[in-house]
């Protein structure tokens, strides 16, 4: 084999290896920025809105069950912020900014609670105020473009025909069931434990 051929082959493999590494990094980065937890056989998609009173009401009870199910690896949980209220996209954006720094379930549930609490304050409607709140509570965040995640949210909302919050879609053995309202969702999740 000529020196030129060997050099070209070497270069080709180097390019291939770097592309593969970059691809893996991108996938991991995406995974890191999407609120998905666990790898269990049952997929649970929880659709909530920070400004929706029934969502707020069910959050403490739902959190405990979800943490338990994820710990047991019984479910793959997808948390989908649903933009029903005019300020929901702003809150969702900051939630995603924060999970970019730390996407552990316990941590993101804390962020959800902080944002739920903030949504009760009628003045908490600007990015400056949410940033100040995050600083005050010691929540690290990094600004990035969440459009790919919003596109994924839209695809899920459209696929599951979500028209109200809170809604929960449970996919088990290829069968999909939708539950609406706090009581229904809690019962459905309890059935999975």
């Amino acid at each position: 084999m000529g020196l030129k051929k060997a050099l070209a082959l070497c270069m080709f493999f180097m390019v291939l290896a770097s592309l593969a590494a970059a691809g893996r990094g991108w996938t991991e980065e995406r995974k890191q920025s999407f609120p998905s937890y666990g790898s269990g056989p049952v997929e649970v998609r929880l659709y909530t809105d920070y400004f929706c009173p029934p969502c707020r009401a069910m959050e403490p009870d739902v959190e405990k069950i979800l943490q338990d199910l994820v710990k047991k690896n019984a479910i793959r949980l997808l948390l989908v912020d649903t933009p029903i209220h005019r300020y929901s996209p702003l809150y969702s954006r900051y939630f995603l900014y924060a999970i970019r720094q730390n996407n552990a379930l316990e941590h993101i549930l804390r962020i959800r609670n902080i944002l739920i609490e903030a949504s009760r304050n009628k003045e908490m409607t600007t990015q400056e105020r949410i940033e100040a709140l995050f600083r005050e509570r010691g929540i690290a965040y990094s600004v990035w473009d969440p459009k790919p995640v919003f596109d994924r949210y839209n695809a899920l909302i459209t696929e599951d025909m979500i028209k109200a919050t809170p809604s929960c879609v449970v996919i088990r053995n290829g069968q999909k069931k939708t539950f609406i309202g706090g009581a229904e969702i809690l019962n459905a999740l309890k059935d999975l434990t």
Binding site: D49, F51, C52, P53, P54, C55, T82, I84, H85, I162, K163, A164, T165, P166, S167, I180, G181, G182
Partner: peptide, 10 residues
């Protein structure tokens, strides 16, 4: 805007 059991996006 008040919702009790669920918040509709209608």
């Amino acid at each position: 805007d008040a919702c009790t059991t669920g918040c509709s996006s209608l």
